[in-house]
Write a protein that binds this DNA or RNA. Sequence first.
DNA 1: GAGTGGTCTAGACCACACG
DNA 2: GTGTGGTCTAGACCACTCA
Lengths: 254, 254
Amino acid sequence: MGTTQLESVPEPKYWHLKTVIGEALDSDFSVGEILPNERDLAARFGVARATLRQALEQLELEGRLQRRRGVGTTVAPPRMGVDVSTTEQAWPGAGQDSWQSVDCQTVVPPAAVARLLETEADEQTHSVRRLRVSHGQPVAAELLYIPASAVPELSAIDAPSGPARARAVLRELQHLEFEGQDRAVELGSARADDAKELDRLPGAPVLVVTTRYFSEGRTAAVSVATYRADTCRLTFGDSGDLEISHHDQERRAS
Amino acid sequence: MGTTQLESVPEPKYWHLKTVIGEALDSDFSVGEILPNERDLAARFGVARATLRQALEQLELEGRLQRRRGVGTTVAPPRMGVDVSTTEQAWPGAGQDSWQSVDCQTVVPPAAVARLLETEADEQTHSVRRLRVSHGQPVAAELLYIPASAVPELSAIDAPSGPARARAVLRELQHLEFEGQDRAVELGSARADDAKELDRLPGAPVLVVTTRYFSEGRTAAVSVATYRADTCRLTFGDSGDLEISHHDQERRAS
DNA sequence: GAGTGGTCTAGACCACACG
DNA sequence: GTGTGGTCTAGACCACTCA
């Protein structure tokens, strides 16, 4: 009787909110503009703050919003394309590769890395910390693991740690014969140390790029690079100028 | 007096929980095993259910848990490696490429896709829907856009829609000269239609792979493929057997 | 119908940035 | 200090799966 339309599958409020706000971002806001605070927005839409936050979280995940504690919520610029192509086959640190070395230590790698390196679980590796900056922003933090046995000359390097040692280690790497590399991308959440380098909170979504470097028939190095998922689009090949946002997709006609 | 240790930066409860549960998963649970329900777990750890859920969400995001409404929470198997390398340069649908065609329609593409295709905003395109299945599970849903003007022969195909038309369209594509492709990966959230194909809830995190196909000096096709971020690790090159989980990384000695 | 995860509420307090 | 987003609580109800 009263129900003219049967809401067979009621859409969650936060999903509907996300759509509404997303459309508002397209039409009424420009990049960098600040949104009303969460309490006001929640009141305006007649929902609890937690529900409003669920919608904002999704929009942030899609790279459309940027939220900073103590500051506010702003409209994010389009994601920047970051080249991670494997076409330029070379050791990390070769030439000018947009990474800056931060530190180097000697550590026993985590089990997963040891497995990739095909070393004993407790074998020592050099661990180089690097940071990738693009357009003035940190976009990725990397840990590069090199088995001590792969480059014995490294034991001769003076500095026990620090950026100087990191650069020296990378320099030694170039002397090995490069036989290829291997890459994988998956979703992860930022560890505390990575989050700090990337200016994000721990647990922030990141794209984890794992690279294996081969030399002399074995795995000579493994790199685990965590890219900010909110601000980065990883590009392979010459698609650096590619300009697409997933949210721009719409439902096609049914 | 009473405070022997100053908790300078108290770790969020959900973060600590995530760590504790993560360790428990490694030591006390095996793949496929079901966890206690959320209400019991929350009570056991002495936190609100919302807080417990925040921890579980993170673990699910990292591919360590699988939650299904009405069923329960289970320990997820390691992510499967899905090859998306660009080394095998060819048109989509060529040979046996692990995709199955589902449907084909004639639509005006979303603005972002039109931009990639370098077509007018309202130009018609063929839109092929494909599904990728790996190890018996759907891992990706794709929409492939081909400007009507790029392959005029397509207007002669009989079927107005359906898988038969999809296959016919792909067959026509093979006749064009292949000049290269372009790929980008970014984080997104599943649209309602993709979520349904992937057996996930709308908004679930996905890895969006955008590919441009070039022919005769122009963009002849654009593919937008959304991969389940929880179950997939995208591999480039011959790293299909790569076995790493990000969570396996640990803090290195400071 | 019982049990599960998913959504939602209306509060509270905390950590942080900035003037 | 004030205002922001981040965390947390203790409930409630809903949608789904399965016996």
